[in-house]
């Protein structure tokens, strides 16, 4: 099955979530903070975008979830990357490189 075409922004969010999960399993807030960190604060993902994306990606089979204990002993839902997610990360990365290269090219034309 070929991956469904995703809109630019949604694709970007997916890419960022997948990328942040490379570091290991994380709960929602962790992912959100991680994205903030790796993009040097450029992207602040609101829960209203984050959770729908997480649930959608889980249904796609790219990530899986389980309940665990948070750092200060709270019950929290953790997400981890699946095999399919790893593959999806590769696809999204390539796609993004192509887009960013193309945009760069476009901007260089004076």
């Amino acid at each position: 099955m070929s991956p469904e075409p995703t809109s630019l922004l949604q694709g970007t969010l997916d890419l960022l979530i997948l990328k942040s999960l490379i570091a290991g399993e994380m709960h929602g807030l962790g992912i959100s903070r991680r994205i903030q960190q790796i993009t040097s604060g450029t992207f602040v993902v609101k829960p209203g975008s984050l959770f729908p994306a997480l649930h959608r990606m889980e249904e796609e089979g790219w990530i899986s979830s389980f309940w665990g204990e948070s750092e200060n002993n709270r019950r929290a839902k953790y997400y981890r990357l699946s095999k399919a997610g790893l593959k999806q990360l590769e696809i999204e990365t390539k796609r993004w490189s192509r887009i960013s290269w193309a945009i760069d090219q476009a901007l260089e034309v004076s």
């Binding site: 709960h27 929602g28 807030l29 829960p47 959770f51 649930h55 948070s70 200060n72 709270r74 019950r75 929290a76 839902k77």
Partner: peptide
């Protein structure tokens, strides 16, 4: 129920933070 818990847990963590 799962979703409810997850969102509430998230809120709790935000407060704690």
């Amino acid at each position: 129920a799962d979703l409810d818990q997850e969102v509430h847990a998230h809120l709790e963590m935000l407060i704690a933070e």
